[in-house]
Design a protein around this nucleic acid. Structure first.
Length: 202
DNA sequence: AATGAGATCGTCT
DNA sequence: GACGATCTCATTG
């Protein structure tokens, strides 16, 4: 059930960003399990991607984890408020990553409702990278965790989408990346209500 | 429905 | 000292 470490070693981050759609992201915190289906992702293409924190081969204390081999989490604080969860992918020294931008609550919805202070029927409960992470209880302490561990992991529940229902569009909030901001490296499930607002076209 | 501003802090220059 | 891979709420731009 749990996705094996080898799954994340795939060097094709664009493939993985699409393939992660439909996979189920679990967290266990103080014995409380929550899980949600990934319905929106973005690929960050290592050192050649102006939108990536690792652009140009930049290595800092924060970005170092992106250079690890795939199968580790990269969680960082954005705008001083939100924790954004990424899946580090590919081989060592190839700092590819996939940002999880939206999830559909599956297990432990009552717990997510408490964390987000809203009913799980509202799409805003886990729409957008900051909200999705918060619904699953992901904060900075989840940085650099093995995704095959006991605190955070992914499972394949055999949820499959029709290729026609997977939409590719430009990534959100990366205007500073100039021409790379136009690359269609955001992937989401057509019609899924938890997909985040920007450019939500069908 | 759309727009705008404020919140808030770790990281890097 | 400046700046975000954002979200929410208030206003009506």
């Amino acid at each position: 059930m749990k996705l094996p470490f080898s799954y994340y070693q795939n060097p094709d981050v664009l493939f993985l960003a699409k393939d992660l759609l439909g996979k189920v992201l679990f967290t266990e915190i103080d014995g409380e399990i929550t899980a949600a289906i990934i319905v929106e992702t973005e690929a960050y293409f290592g050192i050649h991607d102006k939108a990536s924190h690792a652009y140009g081969g930049k290595r800092t204390e924060r970005t170092e984890i992106m250079y690890a081999q795939g199968g580790i989490s990269y969680v960082y604080l954005c705008y001083g408020i939100h924790h954004l969860f990424n899946v580090v992918t590919s081989i060592e020294n190839e700092p590819h990553a996939v940002l999880v931008r939206a999830v559909e609550p599956l297990i432990g919805q009552e717990i997510m409702e408490l964390r987000r202070n809203m009913p799980s029927t509202k799409s805003a409960i886990s729409s957008g990278p900051g909200s999705a992470a918060k619904a699953l209880g992901i904060n900075r302490s989840f940085n650099k965790k093995e995704l095959t561990g006991e605190e955070i992991w992914l499972e394949d529940h055999n949820i499959r989408y029709n290729p026609d229902d997977i939409i590719a569009s430009p990534r959100v909030g990366v205007a500073y990346a100039q021409e790379d901001a136009l690359l269609p490296w955001r992937f989401f499930i057509k019609g899924n209500k938890y997909v985040s607002k920007p450019n939500k076209v069908e």
